[in-house]
Amino acid sequence: MPRLTRLRLTAGAATAVVAAVVLAASPAAAGEPTVTQPHIVAHFDKAAGQTPENITVEPDGSADLTFASARQIAHVTPDGHTAILATLPDEPNPNTPVLKAATVFGIVRAHDGTLYVNYATGTGKTGIWRIGPDGGAPRQIAQLPATALPNGLALDERHGVLYAADSAQGIVWRVPRAGGTPTAWVRDTALTPVPVTGAGFGANGVKIHDGAVWVSNSDRGTLLRVPVRPDGCAGPVETRATGLDHIDDFTFVTPYGDTVLAALIGDDEVAEVHPDGTRAAVLTRADGLANPTSVAVHGGTVYVDSAAYFSQQAPNLLLARLNRGLGR
Score class of each variant (00 low, 15 high):
G288A: 10
S69Q: 13
V21Q: 10
R324K: 08
L223Y: 02
P195T: 15
T82F: 13
L318E: 06
R225C: 10
V304K: 00
D90C: 08
A70D: 01
H298D: 09
L144G: 06
A48G: 08
D134G: 14
L149Q: 03
D156Q: 09
G124R: 15
G31T: 13
D231F: 10
V161A: 03
E238Q: 12
G136S: 12
I128N: 00
Y309R: 06
P193I: 15
R220F: 14
E272Y: 01
A48Y: 07
Q313T: 07
T259G: 11
G257E: 09
A148K: 05
D287V: 01
H75D: 11
V57R: 04
V35Q: 10
A307D: 00
G113Q: 06
A11Q: 14
T126D: 01
G232L: 11
A154P: 00
V226E: 05
T34K: 03
C233G: 07
R229N: 12
A11W: 14
A203E: 02
A74Q: 05
G135I: 10
L244T: 03
E157W: 11
A70W: 02
R187W: 01
V186D: 02
T77A: 14
A101D: 10
F252E: 07
F250R: 02
P255A: 12
Y163G: 00
G136V: 14
I107Q: 04
A29H: 00
V17M: 15
A154N: 03
D79I: 09
P182H: 04
A120R: 02
F67W: 06
D248M: 09
K207R: 14
L65H: 02
Y309M: 05
V175S: 06
E32G: 09
G266R: 07
T34E: 09
A241L: 13
A63P: 06
D156S: 05
D112L: 09
L318P: 00
L319M: 15
H111V: 09
V253E: 05
E53M: 06
Y256K: 15
V22D: 05
G160V: 14
N316K: 02
T96M: 09
L224G: 04
L326Y: 12
G124L: 13
P52F: 02
A20S: 11
P92Y: 06
A28K: 04
H274F: 12
